[in-house]
Amino acid sequence: MGSVAHAHPPAHGHAHAEHHHHEESFVSKYIFSQDHKMISKQYLVTAIIMAWVAVVMSIMFRLQLAWPGEGFAFTNFFLGDKWAPGGVLSPDMYLALVTIHGTIMVFFVLTGGLSGTFANLLIPFQVWCTRYGERFLEHVVVLVLLREQCAHDRLAIC
């Protein structure tokens, strides 16, 4: 049931407020966090890391396109002698780089990173305005019991 059932109704807000101020362990605060703000940060930082992977890839294939067949220590540093002998990108790796660059940018940065960060940050803040966990069961519960839940919480139009 989790946070939805326990989300404090506005009228009783103060009674429950204390309950939320207990100290959290590192794991529950930063890793398996149920807090939408932390989930949003996790998405954002992951996306930034993935974006860097994709940017470095793009620089490698851009170097090849601008100066075809020339060797670059930059390319060799990341790909090693197997895929970039003498720093010259191999045709197979060229195709791999454009493929993974596209995949990472489209799915991991601009879908996961963008929606994941801002939907988690903004939807609870701008709409629900209360604690927002995300557990699988919770989805089911919300879908099945929404009317009672909303009546209970005196939240808006359901």
Binding site: P68, G69, E70, L89, S90, P91
Partner: peptide
């Protein structure tokens, strides 16, 4: 043959 990158 073509797997070898062309040297310009």
């Amino acid at each position: 043959v073509t797997n070898e990158p062309k040297k310009n």
